[in-house]
Amino acid sequence: MKRIICIGNRYVRQDSAGPAVYDLLSQEELPADVELVDGGLAGLNLLGFFDDAELVVLVDNVSGFSSHNGTVVLEPEDIVPLAKNIYDHASGLPYLLRALPEVIEGNAPRIVVVGVEGDYDESVIADAARLALKTAADLGRGRLVVDGTPGGA
């Protein structure tokens, strides 16, 4: 199973790209082996979605990973160093990805983060949705190519 997990707070503009991508993808017919998850604010509680997955594509707002607004494809290694030591209710993706290797059951899935840097419009959300789907489709066959995106696979 491959999962696209869209993360964020749909009631806060600067954290709502993930839910916007979810809303867009939920209107499309996805490949049978791709599951779409409205990860919302679940944070560490999303760990269960990694246990039986071969690939997890996370979609979330990011900041400071690109000099211009738009989408950026990141690896967990780009995010994990941002994890702080103490968990709190606002712990986001960094804590989740940092904790994952310690608690995963079975084989860890391949993980890719589709980030949305800065403010966004419909075209950025559409691009993020396209990237998430392309990642899910291509990585399964081992040939993801993303042009010109910092940290891209």
């Binding site: 990011v62 400071g64 995010i79 606002a90």
Partner: peptide, 19 residues
């Protein structure tokens, strides 16, 4: 057990360890 409330969770490389 403060919870004021789950709001912005963006991964911010430009602000160090603030989430």
């Amino acid at each position: 057990d403060a919870c004021l409330v789950c709001t912005v969770h963006t991964a911010r490389r430009d602000e160090g360890h603030r989430y």
